[in-house]
Structure formats: C-alpha cells, structure tokens
Design a protein around this nucleic acid. Sequence first.
DNA 1: CACTAATATTAGCCTAGTCTAATTATCCTC
DNA 2: GAGGATAATTAGACTAGGCTAATATTAGTG
Lengths: 223, 223
Amino acid sequence: MDLSPIAEEYLKAISTLETEHARPIRTVEIADEIGVTSASVSSMIDTLDERGLLEHTPYKGVELTGDGEEIVTTLVRKHRLLETFLTDHLDYRWTDVHEEADRLEHHVSDEFATRLATFLDDPTTDPHGDPIPDTALTVSEESVQTPLTEYEAGETVVVAQVPDRDHDVREYLFEHGLEPGTELYLEAVTAVGILEVVPDDADDSVSIPTKIARHVSARATSR
Amino acid sequence: MDLSPIAEEYLKAISTLETEHARPIRTVEIADEIGVTSASVSSMIDTLDERGLLEHTPYKGVELTGDGEEIVTTLVRKHRLLETFLTDHLDYRWTDVHEEADRLEHHVSDEFATRLATFLDDPTTDPHGDPIPDTALTVSEESVQTPLTEYEAGETVVVAQVPDRDHDVREYLFEHGLEPGTELYLEAVTAVGILEVVPDDADDSVSIPTKIARHVSARATSR
DNA sequence: CACTAATATTAGCCTAGTCTAATTATCCTC
DNA sequence: GAGGATAATTAGACTAGGCTAATATTAGTG
Ligand SMILES: [Mn+2]
Ligand SMILES: [Mn+2]
Ligand SMILES: [Mn+2]
Ligand SMILES: [Mn+2]
C-alpha cells in the first residue's frame, strides 16, 4: 500500500536529522522536528519499521533503511523541482515557495516529476541553492560550501545556499537583498560577530547577525 | 477549519449530479458516484450540512448551498487549469490528465491557481473542451453545444467537448483521432445508430457507436 | 552502586472516514 | 389502505493518527 503524506513527513524529518547529526535519531528529536508528542512518534516508528523503511532499536533510536532513504530522495526531488517551477515560471518569490512545495510533493506522481524536470530543463539546484537529485536519485556532491561566518573581512564571495525552511531568516535575507547568486564584499566582522557586507547591487553595507550568517553558505569568487 | 479532500470530493459529486438531474440528489446516487456505501454518505451529509455547505431533507435528498457551490467551482477551476498545464506544457496526452488533476486540485493553494492562470494566459477551456471558471468563479455560458448524435449525414462539424472521466471512451476517441477541435464530415448514420465520420486529418471514415457519440458534443462549422 | 532526571513506550481515549447489519421511512402496487 | 420493495438512517466496529497519563528503561551524578 501507498504511504500517507504524514508517514512521508516522518521519513523526511528523520532523514534531515540523520544528515545533521550522523547518528541514530531519538524519538524526542523527531517529535520536536515535526511538532507531535513522543507517544505519536513511537507509534509511527512501529508502522515504518514494519514496512521496512527504518530500523528501530527500542530505547536507542532509528535509522532509515535504503528503501526509506529512496522514498525521501524522491520527495526531495519533487519538492525542489516544484520550488524551481514556482519561482521560475509562476513568479513566486523564493521566500514563498517552500510551504507550497512541502504540501504538493506528496501528491504529484512520478510521471509528473519526470515531465516537470524535462520542462524545467533538468535543473540541478533549487531556488535556495540546494541540489536537486537526478532521475537515478543521485544527489550531486553538495559542492564544497562554507558558512558565511568562516570568511574574513576583505574577501569577496558568492552566496550559494540560503535556508529554505525558516520564515524569519528567509524574510531577513530577502529584505537585505541576499539570495543565491548574490556577490558579497565582506567589509568587516565586528567584535560581537556581526558581518558588514556589501551586496553587488547595493551601495551601502548590510549588517548580518551571526545567528543568520551561520546558515548562509558561500563560495569564494573565482575572480 | 479546512475541508478534507474527501469532503471536497463529495461536494463535487453532488454538484455533478445536480447538473445532470436538476433536482435534489439522493443518498444512493452519491454513494454510486463516489463508490462508498449509503451509510458513509449519510454520515458525510451530516457533517456537510452542519458546515452549511448543503441542505439535507431527511429521506428526501440534498441540495448544495451557495457556499457549497462556491467550493465546487473553485475546485473545478483548479482542476481545469491543472489539466491545461499538463497537456500544454508537460506534454501529457489529453487522455491522461484527469486523474492527476483530480488529486492535485485539493492541494494547490488559491495563490497557485491565480498564478497558474496567468502563466497559462487565462485560458477559457480545458483540454476536453470544458469551460474554465474565471477568477470571479463565473462559468462562461457553456456555449451552445449539441451531441454528435443530433447531427445528420452530410453535415460538417467541429468536436467541442469530449468526456473527461471515462477512461474507455477517452481511449476510443484518442485512438480514432477525435479530440476538441477536430473537424468531422458526417458521412452516414447507419440503421443501428453507428456514425460514420471522416476526421479532417484522415482519409478513411471512422465508426463511432452511438453510446460514445452521445457524449461527444460538437458545433456546426461556421464555414 | 543507588537515585534521579530524562526519554521511551504503552494504555486508553478521541476524531474522521470507512464498513456491515439492523432499523425505520417512503413509495408503489394492488 | 395494506404489503412489500426500496432507500435512508442508525448502531456498532475498524483503521490511521493524534493526545494525555501511566509505566518502564536508560543514563548520569553523587
Ligand atoms: Mn524547500
Ligand atoms: Mn512535505
Ligand atoms: Mn477532468
Ligand atoms: Mn478530486
């Protein structure tokens, strides 16, 4: 039988946490990520385990199986293709596409994804700079990207990735003209950790709190 | 609170039956249309009545209220915009779009519909020739269209509408080269009611059983 | 090593939507 | 106008996913 959108959301959450922590994921972490109680998570873990999508060691945590990961990658591919379509063709702001894609990813068919990818000319990154898995569900090496906080005053970098899920961070970046592709001159790093940067299309410098800059990654300019 | 996709499907079914019969709709008719038991329908009727989306006269039948009709029209608009997108931009055959649209219509936001309509250049008919309600949810007068069976041998007509939901009928029409816009010369109507027609792009005539022709509507050619 | 805090699981209840079986209402025919 | 057929509703049970409260396990601290 087919997996429900809710079950799929659990798999995605577990995958995100695995990438973040590189170790088995605890019940309470999933509960926090999704916003349900630990009791609900325990029960969903049972059903996902029975379907062979994860391995559960009671009182220890869970790990996705190959099958579980495959489902997640399919979802991520659909999600990022949808986000790309929304920004590139429906004129959505890149700050507004995540929620729509997060709903639709569970309802578009594989056929739809294949055809949408062709329509979009097989894009490799989404509007937030995240890689789009290809048809074989291979994720291109997340090219070496470094948090903005690792650079030093005087350097010029290009914004590579911005967070897709945190509304406030998205709005902050949008309002200050930062998005994937924006070139930045790193003017100064203040004592309290605020970065003063000058975007390529602006005259004045913009202050970015560390709390936000930590989640923005950038590449050194090839120039 | 928001309506579930399932509740929305009930409203659509009732609306379809109302259009077809122009009288209050009975429980068993809804059950047949959706494929559930009468007991399930009775219970859903209660919830939709409580929400003011239909009026139920026990043992007599239901009628949609204005609010109920509005929800249906919004769904129909989304459905037909999606079908148009799928055929015109994702290269789906017009025979294959109904099912995808029937799922997605419940999950795309109003914002998405608005933007998709703009992207598509505000189309007024879908790939089956059905009218697309506009933003104000007005359905353009279903322009006078007559079933193919009403025409007589010797006339030339243009196919205006084909059925969107019946898989077998869709396949039959597709395989015989009939779709909205196809021009037909009505060669003969046989005693048993089979129509012999010649599509504009074919040399040979094609036989269409009455059972199918009844569901295809056409306009007399303006030529 | 025992105690406590944190975490996980289980038990039991709720809602939405489904079903079958039982009951009730309506309608049609004689 | 009564009887039987048909349709509608109600009762009661099941599943998925949620919750709270109770219980069990683990881990860390003294
Ligand atoms: Mn996203
Ligand atoms: Mn999602
Ligand atoms: Mn359709
Ligand atoms: Mn539908």
